[in-house]
């Protein structure tokens, strides 16, 4: 008989103290755990015959994507739909954005349409913070420049939680283009808040040394050093569009030095592999590693929907909140 699952935190409901999800720097371990626990219950919903609940009926969620994205956008829209919220989306092409409307004006217009939650993806770091200041909607950051991608980090942590008992003492290595990675930054924040130890690894041209002091992490330019005494290795996507910047000589050389291969998996028999996707097969991970049973990349995708349901559920504003009229 199923005993009530003993959670890893005291029974006290740790409510979310934040109104927005901009980045994870101010989120406490309790708040992150509360988000993860809620996401785990939504994950159960996704396994039912009817994968929809009426929880957020009447709530509207707008996704404003000023940067291309397939999975994140799909995942947020699906999450909103599973909660019976109404969704509208706006992408860069074919909208007033290309006509020169400012971000603020676009958001204020969306707000004037009585939208409750705005999911924003933007190439400028801090764009969601700016919107949170100048509009009244709840803002969820779906990636801002190289700054933060909090829902990706939370879903990564949720995926880890399926495979490990505790974050205290867990050793995670993040390998790749750290400089340009919002995923790396948000993961470092989530993981260190929860008590894990993080090692960042990449070519010296992509590994800001200041991070070691600023973020309480270890850095190394040697893949072997990153994989020794490591429980989970997270490979980051090499952005082909940055090839011109001369950060590494060639993708083949990158793979030789930083690509994870079957050989690494053999030498580290308990190592789990993660990747935020989309994977460049044969560059960050060898072909066989992507399909290996210890690569938990697809469960990251499933968890993405559940996690975003939890974020929308916990942040959706209360209905009786006096509506400040948007001009």
């Amino acid at each position: 008989m199923a005993a009530p699952p003993p959670s890893d935190a005291p029974e006290r409901p740790a409510a979310l103290r934040h109104r927005h999800l901009l980045d994870l720097s101010t989120y406490s371990a309790d708040e992150i755990r509360h988000l993860l626990r809620t996401a785990e219950e939504f994950r159960a919903v996704l396994e039912r015959p009817i994968r929809q609940v009426p929880t957020l009926q009447g709530t509207s969620v707008a996704s404003l994507f000023f940067e291309p994205s397939t999975r994140t956008k799909l995942s947020f829209n699906l999450a909103a739909g599973r909660l019976s919220a109404e969704t509208l989306s706006l992408s860069k092409s074919g909208s007033s954005v290309t006509k020169g409307e400012t971000l603020k004006d676009t958001a204020r217009n969306v707000e004037a349409m009585k939208v409750d939650v705005v999911v924003l993806r933007h190439s400028s770091p801090g764009a969601p913070h700016f919107l949170a200041r100048c509009t009244d909607s709840v803002i969820v950051n779906a990636g801002d420049g190289a700054h933060a991608h909090p829902t990706q980090a939370l879903l990564d942590v949720l995926t880890m939680r399926e495979h490990v008992d505790a974050f205290e003492g867990l050793r995670v290595s993040i390998i790749g283009d750290i400089t340009h990675s919002r995923v790396a930054r948000s993961n470092v924040q989530a993981l260190t808040t929860l008590g894990a130890t993080v090692t960042l690894c990449g070519p010296a041209t992509m590994l800001p040394v200041e991070m070691e002091a600023a973020l309480d992490v270890r850095t190394t330019t040697r893949l072997d050093a990153a994989l020794d005494d490591c429980d989970i290795a997270m490979a980051l996507r090499i952005q082909m569009e940055r090839q011109d910047e001369g950060l590494f000589p060639s993708t083949r050389e990158y793979h030789r030095q930083f690509g994870i291969t079957l050989d690494h998996l053999r030498r580290h028999p308990d190592l789990l592999i993660m990747h935020p996707g989309p994977v460049n097969r044969g560059i960050e991970l060898s072909n066989a590693v992507v399909d290996h049973e210890r690569a938990i990349i697809l469960s990251q995708v499933t968890n993405g929907v559940a996690l975003r349901m939890a974020v929308l559920y916990l942040l959706a504003p209360q209905r009786d909140r006096p509506d400040a009229s948007a001009a």
């Binding site: 979310l16 509360h34 919903v45 609940v53 929880t55 709530t59 916990l314 209360q318």
Partner: peptide, 28 residues
């Protein structure tokens, strides 16, 4: 025996001061 948490189906979810905590639903 199954466990049911009805939070996701309540009609007052968004009328409360803060979002109620969701507990486990396990119908084996």
């Amino acid at each position: 025996l199954g466990l049911l948490d009805v939070t996701m189906y309540r009609d007052d979810v968004r009328l409360q001061l803060e979002q109620p905590r969701i507990q486990a639903t396990r119908i084996p």
